[in-house]
Amino acid sequence: MDWKFGDFTIIDLIAATTNAFNAALLARRPDHYKHFTVVGILLLGVIGGLAGGIARDILLLQTPAALLNPAYLILALVAAGAALATDYRSGQALRGGLFQFATSLALPWYAIIGAAEAMDAGLPHLAAVLIGVVSATAGRYLVDLTCRVTPKLFIRSEWYVGTTVLAAVAYLVCAAGFRLGVWPATLIAFVVAFVFRYAAMLRGWEEPEPWEPPELQAAENPGPPVHERRDQEPGSGPG
Rank of each mutant, 00 (worst) to 15 (best):
A85M: 13
A20H: 04
L68P: 02
I41A: 02
H32E: 05
A51E: 06
D231I: 07
A27V: 11
A193C: 06
L172I: 11
L26N: 05
A24R: 04
E209Y: 10
P108I: 03
V173K: 01
M201S: 01
L73N: 01
T18N: 03
V192K: 00
N69R: 05
V39E: 13
G139Q: 07
F21V: 07
I155Q: 14
A116D: 04
L172A: 02
L60I: 12
G235K: 05
V39F: 14
L187R: 04
A15I: 08
G52C: 12
Y198H: 06
I112M: 05
G6C: 07
C147S: 15
D231G: 06
R156E: 15
L25H: 07
A51C: 14
L216V: 14
M1K: 11
A24W: 06
V173M: 07
A127E: 04
V226P: 03
P213A: 14
L60V: 11
F190H: 08
G162W: 02
G96E: 12
R156G: 10
S236E: 06
L145I: 15
T37Q: 14
I14F: 10
F36M: 14
V133R: 00
R28M: 15
N221S: 14
A170D: 04
V134I: 15
A200P: 07
I41K: 03
I47E: 01
E215C: 11
G132F: 00
A185L: 13
L50C: 12
G235E: 12
D144E: 08
F190S: 02
G204D: 08
A15W: 01
V169Q: 00
D87P: 08
L105A: 12
L13H: 03
E117S: 09
R230E: 10
Y141F: 13
T150R: 15
F99L: 13
G223F: 09
Y171D: 03
V169W: 00
A23F: 04
L180Y: 13
T86R: 11
F21Y: 14
R29Q: 15
I58V: 15
A83S: 09
D120R: 15
L123G: 06
E233H: 10
L75R: 00
L142E: 07
S236M: 10
Y198C: 00
G53H: 01
F5S: 10
P70Y: 07
D7H: 11
G114C: 13
L94S: 10
R28T: 07
G49S: 08
V169T: 04
L145Y: 05
V165Q: 00
C174T: 07
G40R: 13
E207T: 13
P108Y: 04
I131N: 02
R229F: 11
A118E: 01
A55C: 15
E206Y: 02
F101Q: 04
P30I: 05
G177Q: 10
P214A: 13
W183P: 05
A27Q: 00
